[in-house]
Nucleic acid binder design. Structure first.
Lengths: 342, 342
DNA sequence: GGTTAGCACTCTAACACTAAGAGTGCTAAA
DNA sequence: TTTAGCACTCTTAGTGTTAGAGTGCTAACC
């Protein structure tokens, strides 16, 4: 549906004013704030029309209007223009991220922190995942006389380790044997292929050596599982408690959902590739029915990878959020791409 | 101050009833619930006396009584008796923790999860810390052509790693040289001694080798710093939002405080060695003025180490919380002691 | 036909008032 | 010292009332 220019202007003004103040917007307020060169009566007529069409709603008969979900949607898709983050803002973001550029995880942790600070919302970032990730290398570090650590280095730069224990005395020589045998078997293998059956087949292939290996193989599998699972970095959860204004129950539900790693990961996984906004019931989760999610994906060497998202109430400055998240996404993309190239 | 037996009985009954229902307790309720063989008038007299002495308070003139902080304190110190966790409960806790017994961190993570589930409160656990922790060993894992990972294994079983990058091509031989030289220098050194000046002195000692090392040394220092910092495992934060009944602002402050790692760590560090309870303003932090903290320390090889604590509103069943936290503390102590012995 | 001024109308928020109920403290008797 | 009885206090929930904000509608105007 196309709206006449004046209606657009009115809708836009209402969205902006309501975003700023949180108060329903009346025709007189609009007359003062937006430079519409018509009277309040005309505005009222237009507002009544926008209300009929489903773009605005009145909390009660004699209150001003607030945008509906459909109103926000129209505003975002058809009216809003996005001003990219300023040069100096971008430099700030770059420099902050660069400080943490020693592993993908720490970059993403920092990115979520930055996002929550810049937007004032809750922010999440997922580590890169995907079916194509392979084991780059496995290394071993002795940690005790009967314990050692398996370090799985994945092709996406993620490094996971896991302790294991052996019945026998571990020596550097034994670890070297492990190193050789296991790298031959596992290097280049997809993380998703490292299943229990795979492990068993592998063990069978080692002949009598396999007797020494149950702990090691389990450790490798568990480290590979950890590397495969996208992990979630989160910041600014408490911001949620400062926003959903009146609605405490809602804030609680959102926080509860954010703490449910499994469901959260699933939702994030299904977010689209490009920067997008989901408002209210556009979200797949009922817990976010009064929230908005602004998300994007960072790219690793040009292909879309993990997710960056901010979560807040519906009443937010979408233009600002989008420009911030896109800027952070860009910076994360280039930093991680460079980091794991080496 | 000693209270007469009947007063103790009344105080005890009020604490129990209020803990259960959250409602101020009146003389008639007390008459029904506790088997005091006197009339409600007598109870009223005693309650008036307890109120004068500061053990009880009336929210308003014609309401029942609720315990004051002093009332709870007296109840805890002089009246309450603690029933240890049942055999089967203990077995459950042991088995749950045993599943995660592959590193101190994962045991503590699991312990905090268990604590929050069993108590319904927010739970925290700190990794073992202390000035006596030394570097046990340093290992290196090559992760790329110009990047590698320094793994610092500390004497308390904590393992931390950090990536570093070199200008030159890294070969296994170079890493072996690093390994030899750096273990000679760092093995046995206290984590707290690994300071910037120490690093510089060490670098000077390496002669021309030191030219290759700036990245490595920084990585070691940072890994050592990470190992030195007690890290905090937390679970059940959202429980806070379900408890502090009416008082939303309070819940928000508590959650905010729990998310402030620095201040939280400082508070936990200063908790006493033995199981203890701090109520209201007994807490060192203003944010916890309406909360109670039940804490204990687990022991590693017999000496008190990290902290376990649960944080909730003042109205909780202290006896139950203490018995749970002590049981979890015992189990953690023996599991970690056994784990790092090896 | 679109725009505007004017006005009656609706609804909320804030405040005051009332009645019922819970629980007390006090007094006088046991 | 304990108890029965009663007047008293204070909260809670519900009801009315009023001021104010904002509307929709109508009739006049360009």
């Amino acid at each position: 549906m196309e709206l006449a220019p004046r209606k657009q202007k009115i809708l836009s003004a209402i969205v902006k004013s309501y975003t700023l103040t949180g108060e329903p917007v009346g025709s007189k307020t609009l007359l003062n704030e937006a430079d519409l060169e018509v009277s309040s009566a005309t505005i009222r007529n237009e507002m009544a029309d926008l209300t009929n069409k489903g773009f605005l709603i009145q909390p009660y008969t004699s209150a001003g209007r607030i945008p509906t979900q459909q109103g926000y949607r129209y505003y975002i898709d058809k009216i809003m223009s996005i001003t990219p983050v300023s040069q100096s803002g971008r430099r700030y973001i770059e420099s902050q991220l660069y400080e943490s550029a020693d592993s993908p995880e720490s970059i993403l942790q920092k990115a979520s922190k930055l996002l929550s600070e810049l937007t004032g919302l809750a922010a999440v970032a997922t580590t890169p995942g995907g079916d194509e990730i392979r084991i780059h290398k496995i290394s071993f570090v002795q940690t005790g006389s009967h314990t050692a650590m398996a370090v799985v280095i994945a092709s996406n730069g993620i490094i996971k380790n896991r302790l294991f224990r052996c019945e026998f005395l571990i020596t550097p020589e034994i670890l070297e044997v492990f190193d050789k045998a296991l790298n031959e078997t596992f290097a280049g293998v997809k993380l998703s292929s490292v299943t229990q059956p795979f492990i068993q087949t592998a063990a069978a292939g080692f002949g009598e050596l396999s007797l020494f290996m149950p702990g090691v193989l389990t450790a490798i599998k568990e480290a590979a599982d950890k590397a495969k699972d996208v992990s979630i970095c989160m910041s600014g959860q408490t911001n949620i408690l400062y926003m959903h204004d009146d609605n405490f129950l809602n804030a609680r539900n959102v926080i509860q959902f954010l703490n449910n790693t499994h469901d959260l990961a699933k939702m994030l996984e299904n977010l689209p590739i490009h920067t997008s906004v989901s408002i209210g019931n556009e979200n797949s989760r009922i817990e976010l029915i009064s929230s908005a999610v602004v998300s994007t994906r960072y790219e690793i060497n040009g292909s879309p990878s993990g997710v960056l998202a901010v979560i807040g109430p519906v009443r937010i400055d979408y233009g600002r959020m989008i420009s911030i998240i896109e800027c952070v996404g860009d910076c994360v993309s280039s930093l991680i791409s460079e980091l794991i190239k080496i």
